[in-house]
């Protein structure tokens, strides 16, 4: 485990920019706890340094009723979706 960094947000931004795909891997790389990293990600999204994008997996805005493939895609129930984060320029 790496020693915790004194600049968590900067480290987090560097991890995102480097393409580290998971929070757990970021925790291994930075020595920060996953809680701090998640809070940091939330903060960076709120402040506009990261952009969070919902991944609706192709469902139309009208829901499954408007989709020819409804029922076959496996995402008709629930409604939760993944979120991706990407860096934004400030």
């Amino acid at each position: 485990m790496t020693a915790p960094t004194v600049a968590p947000l900067s480290a987090l931004l560097a991890e995102v920019a480097a393409g580290t795909p998971t929070v757990a891997e970021m925790a291994r790389n930075t020595g920060l706890s996953t809680d701090v990293l998640r809070a940091g990600l939330d903060h960076l999204v709120r402040t506009g340094r990261l952009q969070a994008t919902n991944l609706p997996i192709g469902c139309p805005p009208s829901g499954c009723g408007g989709c020819a493939a409804a029922g076959g895609c496996g995402v008709a129930e629930g409604g939760n979706s993944l979120v991706t984060l990407s860096l934004t320029r400030r």
Binding site: P21, T22, V23, A24, L87
Partner: peptide, 9 residues
């Protein structure tokens, strides 16, 4: 360009 992606497992 290639956008970074983060997934919280």
């Amino acid at each position: 360009p290639i956008d970074p992606l983060v997934i919280d497992l």
